[in-house]
């Protein structure tokens, strides 16, 4: 390792590439992001508090984080099932299913939004059958949940799938030879091994759902206090030229995003450690 590190300096271009990387990163990402906090700092603490604790804002945090949490939980369950059948079972069309799992990454969020609205609206593909039952999905918080499940699903599948693939059959064979039932070997051998990956996938899906805008607004109904997500409040304030208000709420969201990023990095480190120990 040491000899390798020393010889690495033989390659030219360190100053150029690192310099350009830091310059581009600063211009595009860091300085503009700092603008949020600089702008917020021009407000007095009372003004900031008034903005971020307004009833409409508080209702939107509850809605945004509540639906994001619920969607991530649904995705953790069904993402695990999908990863399991993709790794462990063979069935016709498996390659196609495997490729299409990434659809929410590739499909523009606005397209997903109008498609989901067309499915779950009162007269929509599925909505028309739910309407007589008194169930409404579009233009209620349930619609937001559906959109967030859509965009979060691949995160869980794609973090759990490689770990399941790397998990050798030997572990379960050893458990079975020691007299474990299939249920015991799955819950005591397989689940603990994939738990870090599953938690990481859950956190990634949650973090993405918290900031999501495009797929949600078409199906949410966007009623203040009921179905208005936090990113929409920022947009509304911007459209009213209330830059200070928009920025204060954006600062709250950014701080939460950074905290989530930290948690995800710690989870991934845990996941990597677990992977090394098993190997």
């Amino acid at each position: 390792m040491m000899a390798n590190a020393a010889s690495r300096s033989v390659l030219p271009g360190f100053g150029l590439t690192l310099g350009f990387t830091i310059l581009y990163l600063s211009l595009i990402v860091l300085i503009p992001l700092a603008a949020v906090f600089v702008k917020t700092a021009t407000l007095s603490p009372e003004q900031i508090w008034a903005q971020i604790s307004a009833p409409r804002a508080v209702a939107s945090y509850r809605l945004t984080f509540g639906t994001a949490l619920l969607a991530a939980m649904v995705n953790a369950v069904f993402g695990l099932i999908l990863a399991w059948i993709l790794v462990r079972y063979s069935f016709p069309g498996k390659r196609l299913v495997d490729a299409l799992v990434d659809l929410p990454f590739a499909l523009p969020t606005a397209v997903a939004g109008i498609a989901l609205a067309a499915i779950y609206a009162k007269n929509g593909w599925i909505g028309q059958f739910l309407e007589p039952l008194g169930i409404r999905i579009a233009f209620t918080p349930a619609g937001i949940l559906v959109a967030l499940i859509f965009i979060g699903l691949p995160f869980v599948v794609r973090t759990v799938q490689p770990v399941l693939q790397d998990l050798d059959a030997e572990f379960e064979e050893a458990a079975a030879s020691l007299g474990a039932t299939r249920w015991q070997s799955v819950t005591r051998v397989v689940l603990p091994a994939i738990l870090p990956a599953l938690t990481t996938g859950f956190a990634l899906a949650f973090a993405r759902a918290v900031g999501e805008y495009g797929s949600v607004i078409f199906i949410a109904g966007n009623m203040p206090l009921v179905s208005e997500i936090t990113p929409l409040i920022i947009i509304t304030k911007l459209e009213q030229y209330d830059y200070a208000g928009a920025t204060a709420i954006a600062a709250v969201m950014l701080l939460i995003s950074f905290a989530l990023l930290l948690v995800i990095n710690l989870l991934q480190a845990w996941s990597a450690r677990r992977g090394r120990r098993d190997a």
Binding site: L25, G211, L254
Partner: peptide, 24 residues
């Protein structure tokens, strides 16, 4: 740290990504 900072735009809400350029 640099690797984490490069990933930063993925954890920022798209709405905030637009807002920062309005502020600048």
């Amino acid at each position: 740290l640099l690797t984490t900072l490069i990933d930063l735009p993925f954890s920022v809400s798209p709405v905030i990504a637009g807002l920062i350029y309005v502020l600048v």
